[in-house]
Amino acid sequence: MSITDKFLNDIEGHLLLAATREEGRTAAARFSAPLDWLTDAQRCEVERRFEAEYLALARASWQHSAERAGRLRDEYEATYRRLRHRLLAGWLLTCALVLGVLVVGLARSC
């Protein structure tokens, strides 16, 4: 991975985190809106905790997705290697058969 790719991945990660935090704040505000009996300090605390939990759940989901993507990548790479080996074996067998036919044909013509 090049430095540019790493830099772009870092920026993407920061933007994703910022967007998720904003989603958490919005969800927290929607959650606390009907709780009109809360004081301002209590509302802030509820929203802060809600946002923190929202972010923790998002991170857990991202980690699960990344782990699953890694497992899938490993499976696909293994399948690709097997297919590549089969193709190479088939190509070598075909070459050997063609060479054998040519050798037999030349031996008969001599």
Rank of each mutant, 00 (worst) to 15 (best):
I3S: 10
T4P: 00
D5L: 15
D5W: 05
F7P: 00
L8G: 04
L8W: 07
N9Y: 07
N9I: 11
I11N: 01
E12G: 02
E12W: 04
G13D: 02
H14K: 08
H14C: 07
L16H: 02
A19M: 13
A19N: 06
T20Y: 03
R21K: 11
R21N: 01
G24K: 00
G24C: 06
R25T: 05
R25I: 09
T26N: 05
A27P: 01
A27N: 05
A27E: 07
A28S: 10
A28M: 05
A29Q: 08
R30D: 03
R30M: 14
R30S: 12
A33Y: 09
P34M: 13
P34R: 12
P34F: 14
P34C: 13
L35H: 08
L35C: 08
W37C: 08
W37A: 05
T39E: 02
T39G: 10
D40Q: 08
D40Y: 02
A41V: 13
A41T: 12
A41M: 06
A41S: 11
Q42G: 02
Q42M: 07
R43D: 00
R43V: 03
R43C: 01
C44H: 05
E45L: 10
V46Q: 01
V46M: 02
V46Y: 00
V46S: 01
R48V: 08
R49S: 04
R49M: 06
F50A: 05
F50Y: 14
F50L: 11
E51P: 00
A52W: 04
A52I: 09
E53P: 01
Y54F: 15
A56T: 03
L57I: 09
A58L: 05
R59I: 15
R59M: 12
A60D: 05
A60S: 12
S61K: 14
S61Y: 10
S61L: 15
S61P: 00
S61H: 12
S65Q: 06
A66H: 07
E67M: 12
E67Y: 12
R68C: 07
R68Y: 07
A69F: 11
G70H: 04
G70F: 03
G70W: 03
R71S: 10
R71V: 03
R73C: 10
D74Y: 05
D74H: 10
E75M: 15
E77A: 15
E77D: 13
E77P: 00
E77F: 14
A78T: 13
R81G: 02
R81A: 13
R82K: 13
R84V: 11
R84M: 08
H85W: 08
H85R: 15
H85I: 13
H85S: 11
R86C: 09
R86S: 10
L87I: 15
L88Y: 07
G90E: 03
G90S: 14
L92N: 04
L92D: 02
L93G: 04
T94A: 15
T94C: 12
T94P: 00
T94E: 03
C95Y: 06
C95Q: 05
C95E: 01
L99K: 10
G100W: 03
V101Y: 07
L102R: 10
V103T: 12
V103E: 04
V104L: 15
V104N: 08
L106T: 06
L106G: 11
R108T: 06
R108A: 13
S109V: 14
C110V: 15
C110R: 15
